[in-house]
Amino acid sequence: MGKARNQFASTVIVIGAIAGAVVFTQKITPGFQSLFQGAATTSPSANPSASGTGSTAADQTVQGDPVNYQFGTVQLEVVRKSGKISAVNLLQATATNGRQGAFSPLVQSALQAQGTNFGNLSGATYTVDAFKQALTSAISKLK
C-alpha cells in the first residue's frame, strides 16, 4: 500500500525533505527588515526542539527521519553554529533503482543553497495585507 502511494508522490516527498529543512532555518523571521532578509543569523528557531532563548540559538546538529520514496531513501542533517545554519548535509540520498532524475543535481543544489543567508526574498507579488499579516505573525514570535 505504502509503495503504491510513494510511487504516486515520489517527488513530493523529496521536496518535502526540503520543506522539512525550512523548519530549521526559521520560517518567518522576526523584525521588519528580516522579513525580506535572510535571517538565519538573527532569529530564534521556529522548531520547538531547536528553540534557543534570545538571538543566538545554541549550536546543534539535528537529524531528520529517513524518508522513503519511490527511488530510495533521503535523510538530512542540519547543523547550526553560532545561530546560523552552517550545513544541510545529506546523510542518505539513495536511488535504489537507478533513476538519477529522482534526486537530481538540481534538487540537491537547491537544497544545499537553502542553508545560506540572503539579503532579499523573491516571491509572487504579495499584497500589503499579506505583508502586514506576515509581519504581525513574525513579531508575535519574538521572544
Binding site: 526540503i18 520543506a19 525550512v22 532555518t25 526559521q26 520560517k27 518567518i28 522579513l35 532578509q37 535572510g38 537547491a110 537544497l111 543553497a113 537553502q114 545560506t116 543567508n117 540572503f118 539579503g119 532579499n120 526574498l121 523573491s122 516571491g123 509572487a124 504579495y126 495585507d129 499579506a130 505583508f131 499579516q133 506576515a134 505573525s137
Partner: peptide
C-alpha cells in the same frame, strides 16, 4: 558592497502570510 545583497532567497510557492512561509532556496 555586501555579500548578503548579492544573495536572493526564493520563496516557497505559498503566501508570505502562510503558516509554512519561508524560503525554498537561495541564489547568489
Amino acid at each position: 558592497t555586501t555579500e548578503l545583497d548579492w544573495r536572493v532567497g526564493i520563496h516557497k510557492p505559498v503566501s508570505l502570510a502562510a503558516e509554512n512561509a519561508g524560503h525554498l532556496t537561495v541564489i547568489d
